[in-house]
Design a protein around this nucleic acid. Structure first.
Lengths: 121, 121
DNA sequence: CCTGAAAATGAAAATCATTTTCATTTCTGA
DNA sequence: TCAGAAATGAAAATGATTTTCATTTTCAGG
């Protein structure tokens, strides 16, 4: 964890939700931090692979980031406005385990996401 | 609905699931269709706004498309050799429905994939 | 059949987020 | 203190997608 990563975490805390790399870069600039766009991207990559930051996609394909919640969760994403809700996924865990067993797979993991249109849209 | 849109629908039927614009373009080329990449993009846009085609995003941000209401299946993918097994996902369907209802989302869909190491590897 | 306006087409250029390159600067630990 | 490693960032490269624009096709009326 280096200086840039700490700066990025700080701004993500300030934001308190999702923001794109470009947005985070702008915010850092405005608050007088000296940090390059490349470094913001690199810090985000690193934080994502350390599971400190969650990454997903806006409707237009731009990546957005936010600090991870604590538990392993899945997302319910609005196709329209991009808002997300963390949802419970124990059903998925069980399904994963069952399917893996049935087909003799080991060291399994999974991805699952639900998308739709939220009540507000 | 013009000729290009019909060609794109035909290839999506053949694919029977998700594919990116670039992939669809390649498939059309290979099957001898004369159609430009630009036109594929335009046809897809139009089909999406007519709700004939569903659009979502791969993890890397590339847009992927499939015919609306296409019944889809899930895959168990080997991380090592890439082999895939089609698996049953009614548990996922139920989970999707339950979560959507709980949070008031409508027009929901989902993606789910299990990855691991297959018996052969 | 014509004819011309509207729609469709596609090659090439533009866009834009993201990644890579590479030369330079900052750390670190012996 | 010093050398090698890690970090940095400007600029170039990348790759999907969109826009531009000149050309071709379609098609309703004459």
């Amino acid at each position: 964890m280096n200086k840039s990563e700490i700066k990025v975490i700080a701004v993500l805390e300030r934001v308190g939700g999702f923001a794109s790399a470009q947005e985070l870069y702008q915010l850092l600039q405005r608050s007088g931090e000296s940090i390059g766009l490349t470094t913001v991207y690199r810090a985000l990559q690193s934080l994502v692979s350390d599971k400190i930051v969650d990454q997903l996609r806006r409707e237009d394909g731009e990546a957005i980031y936010r600090l991870c919640g604590d538990s392993h969760h899945h997302h319910l994403v609005c196709k329209q406005c991009g808002s997300t809700v963390e949802i419970e996924g124990s059903a998925i865990e069980r399904w994963t385990k069952a399917m893996a067993e049935e087909h003799g797979f080991r060291e399994v993991g999974h991805t699952a996401e639900i998308f739709g249109i939220c009540p507000a849209c």
